[in-house]
Design a protein around this nucleic acid. Structure first.
Lengths: 111, 111
DNA sequence: CCTATGTTTAACCTATCCGTTAATTAACGA
DNA sequence: TCGTTAATTAACGGATAGGTTAAACATAGG
């Protein structure tokens, strides 16, 4: 699970972390500010932030004793780019063609 | 981790599973066919398929003793839709506006 | 009916994830 | 300098992930 895409998807697989990203979309925030809406301890949030940072989804800066987190959406672009490869499988414009190709494939499998 | 989006992202966080999806994009395949490129056991692949199925990323059909897997990209559409909310943070068209908004936000934080 | 083939389930192991509380580090400020 | 605030690190525990091998299940077919 060492590849970049896996790290990104794994980071996004936790609802708390996605909520943190949603909050950061409204502006930078400190660890305490990010922890406030959740019923989990500060160390737990601190770890989530480390996971997000390692995935490149946030950057952090220090100002006095506060550590501010800032959203970095570039990894989301990468993840989206990967998914785009499958767009034809859900996009209406391609559904008909895709069904046709699958039919062809099934026929070939018979032989 | 019971919510749908978490299950989808978790399913995508494994490189073997993503490779399986890539293979299925070229057409349906049996478990043995899917296992062939990997140096892992058949039971391991069988489990990966169960994970993908629970995420809604594949459907499966039985024909004799073969179980064929079929790609279902709808969950990818959902995941992409979630990420789209952050597009303005990476899209060039929005970068300038976004920088402006952040600047405003910083100013407000001062007071 | 018996056997071969394809796949899943069971039982197990190890590593990682996610949470906790307690201790530590860091910096401000009276 | 001492206490307060902000955050991280350490140490631990339970649950889950992902792999294994061995056993069980399902079906085609002689």
């Amino acid at each position: 699970m060492t590849d970049r895409l896996s790290v990104i998807f794994a980071a996004l697989a936790d609802p708390t972390r996605r909520a943190i990203l949603a909050r950061l979309a409204e502006g930078d925030a400190t660890v305490s500010e990010l922890a406030e809406p959740f019923s989990i301890s500060l160390p737990a949030v601190s770890r989530h932030l480390k996971v997000l940072e390692q995935a490149g989804l946030i950057t952090r800066s220090r100002s006095a004793q506060w550590r501010s987190s800032s959203l970095q959406a570039e990894p989301l672009r990468e993840a989206t780019a990967w998914m785009e490869r499958y767009r034809r499988f859900w996009d209406d414009n391609f559904t008909r063609l895709d069904a046709h190709l699958r039919h062809i494939q099934e026929q070939e499998k018979q032989q």
